[in-house]
Design a protein around this nucleic acid. Structure first.
Lengths: 194, 194
DNA sequence: CGCAAACTTTACACCGTGTAAAGTTGACAG
DNA sequence: CTGTCAACTTTACACGGTGTAAAGTTTGCG
């Protein structure tokens, strides 16, 4: 059934989508993507049922290309506050990679339930990473008394949101390295026992 | 020219828009607003040239109803870290008031330049408030050495963003008072000299 | 009476998404 | 060399929301 040929076109659509979202922004149209992939607009619908699913598939494609799981699991060895830092490094430096698609998905969050569900799923996974980092702090006896586990996870999760990254790096123009440093400092200041 | 009658209809549209955005969310249509105001959809266009301008006018209307300026200027008397707290109280407790319109405006940020400009203008004003609070810290010799004035303002601004408020109170379900307390604690932890 | 402002009603252009279906192309199986 | 099947193209269209256009209605008022 020609799976290698099929993959090639499908992949061309995915990477076109990816690159357009990175460059042109969240309002990229189906026809733009098709054009860039060198394919008719209808052909896109042969591979993806709708815009939301295309975007979702694109995130998965990016994850695969970036070994996302490996990058985000790399922090497992570290203990206590070191693990917190490792997680901030891993996730904080992964945000730029997915930012384009994230923006597009967020833009349709209010109108498209499928897009909302896809985004929520991803963010839940990130929250899982936050929780693991907090758990490591607890095990090392380093978590402030001011938070229980849930609240500490919420606080870290909010701190590391894509929108906060967007504001500091894009709106305020902070270099990525400054963003990472600031997040580590802030996370320590609010979460780690003195 | 019947300015009181005119105002009445215009105001009915504005408050309808306001309440619908608070209840139904950011995807409220022009026709919904018209219906709620007891007026034809076309009549809305007699008062506002387009959706963006209606939303902008609605924020101004809300500001007027809430004495926004007074609330946000109330912190002027306080000095140093007290002023920081006063600003967090004022702005943090004002966010819920404008959240509905903010969401709608943000939703069209990517597609409508007018909406983007209006939002940016408002957020610049908030940044001004952040800057004044940081300035108060500097004057009291209480700002950490780790930040210069600009960076400290950026950090506070990002911390107090509408989206972070949204995530903590809506997604995580924090009570408003917990949000305020957490923001004060965090702002102190990262900005105020020990 | 007659004008004018505020509004209604009807109609339509525009855009982007998604559906539907008939036509083209090329590989490969018998 | 022929028939078939999958991948893709082309054309056409329905839908929903925004915004424009223009003719009609109501009401107050000089």
């Amino acid at each position: 059934m020609m799976s290698s040929e099929n993959q090639t076109t499908r992949e061309r659509i995915l990477t076109s989508c990816w690159h357009l979202l990175e460059a042109d922004g969240a309002d990229t149209r189906m026809s733009d993507i098709a054009k860039k992939a060198g394919v008719s607009r209808q052909a896109v619908y042969l591979h993806f049922p709708n815009r939301a699913e295309l975007l979702i598939a694109t995130t998965r494609h990016i994850d695969a290309k970036n070994n996302a799981d490996a990058r985000l699991e790399g922090s497992r060895a570290a203990k206590g506050a070191d693990r917190l830092d490792a997680f901030i490094d891993a996730w904080g430096n992964y945000i730029p990679e997915i930012y384009g698609v994230a923006r597009a998905l967020l833009a349709m969050y209010d109108t498209d339930p499928e897009a909302a569900a896809a985004w929520d799923e991803r963010m839940t996974a990130v929250r899982g990473g936050c929780d693991a980092a907090i758990q490591a702090l607890i095990e090392a006896g380093q978590l402030t008394d001011l938070f229980n586990r849930d609240r500490a996870t919420d606080a870290l999760w909010a701190l590391l949101s894509v929108r906060t990254w967007e504001q500091l790096t894009h709106t305020c123009g902070w270099p990525q390295s400054d963003y990472i440093a600031h997040m580590k400092r802030t996370a320590h200041a609010i979460l780690v026992k003195a």
